[in-house]
Design a protein around this nucleic acid. Structure first.
Length: 276
DNA sequence: AAGGGTCACAACCGCTTTTAG
DNA sequence: GCTAAAAGCGGTTGTGACCCT
């Protein structure tokens, strides 16, 4: 038959995680690595279901997560990607490696949706006067162009994003937290393998970006069909080693930045994305 | 200062897909 | 190949913080 049940539902704790629970979970993952979530509650004694442990790790405790305000660049990326991919938050998050899908989803629901609705209605009132086309695709394109022309030096930001070592605020925070709370127990700077965890995670991300991961996200793969050929054959070995090749969307963002608009190309892209 | 409204975000719920037995 | 649990994902909710009157 199937697998044994992961955890019985009786006695499962719900609600916000306490710092103590966080420490237990992080310590366990430090030792055993992420994965095999079924065994986490049993082995740690946490009164949480495996699902809750996984979510807590991926959305909050995982190293490399950037918290706090979204940069205009990130905001623009999300708007772009949402217009292209829809509410595929996990796929969108794969292009923003320091943000979680949950974070992006929350930011979209609380900030960007309202923002776009507002500007959309403003645009609609203008377009009524000017008798412009008001198809959703064109609206989306206009939003993107506004974004692109208003953000400063996106290509630099993107480059920074691609190269940034996610020595994260989360890691620092946890380091600090662990140090504060369990000062007597361990030497965190030596024992906490953030670099290892980050490394494996980055590798995974890089694979996804490159489309090498057979079990990776479907959407970027689809997009890679349209990928500009020659990305990998540009001959810059250092680039290949240090930064993943640019995907279709990343290239597009860079090009848009340098060319401030490209409405026709965008229309074409929207048509393409609608076909996918 | 107090109370009501709004916002932001962590966490949960439920559905779908993947995988182990 | 089938079944059932694990894992993944998107939608929704609960709650604390903040703002306004």
């Amino acid at each position: 038959m199937g697998r044994p049940p992961c955890c019985d539902k009786i006695g499962i704790k719900k609600g916000p995680w306490t710092p103590e629970e966080d420490i237990i979970l992080v310590s366990y993952i430090q030792e055993h690595g992420p994965g095999n979530w079924r065994s986490v509650p049993t082995n740690t004694g946490l009164l949480r279901c495996s699902k809750s442990c996984r979510l807590r790790w991926t959305n909050y405790l995982r190293p490399g997560i950037k918290r706090g305000n979204f940069t205009p660049h990130e905001e623009g990326m999300i708007i772009h990607l949402q217009a292209l991919l829809g509410n595929k938050w996990a796929s969108i998050a794969s292009y923003l490696p320091q943000r979680t899908d949950n974070d992006i989803k929350n930011y979209w629901n609380t900030h960007l949706k309202k923002k776009l609705n507002k500007s959309e209605s403003e645009e609609r009132s203008i377009s009524e006067n000017m008798a412009l086309q008001t198809s959703a695709a064109r609206n989306a394109i206009n939003h993107r162009s506004t974004y692109a022309s208003s953000t400063e030096n996106i290509s630099r930001l993107l480059e920074g994003w691609m190269r940034a070592s996610p020595k994260s605020s989360t890691a620092d925070f946890l380091d600090q937290k662990l140090q504060n709370r369990t000062n007597d127990h361990m030497d965190h700077h030596n024992q906490f393998p953030y670099e290892q965890l980050q490394g494996s995670w980055e590798e995974g991300h890089s694979k996804r970006i490159n489309g090498d991961d057979d079990q990776g996200f479907g959407v970027p793969k689809k997009i890679s069909v349209n990928n500009v050929s020659g990305d990998h054959e540009d001959g810059d070995d250092d680039h290949d080693h240090n930064t993943p090749p640019l995907t279709f969307i990343e290239k597009w963002l860079l090009e848009e930045t340098s060319n401030g608009g490209q409405m026709e190309e965008m229309s074409h892209l929207m048509e393409l994305s609608n076909m996918l």
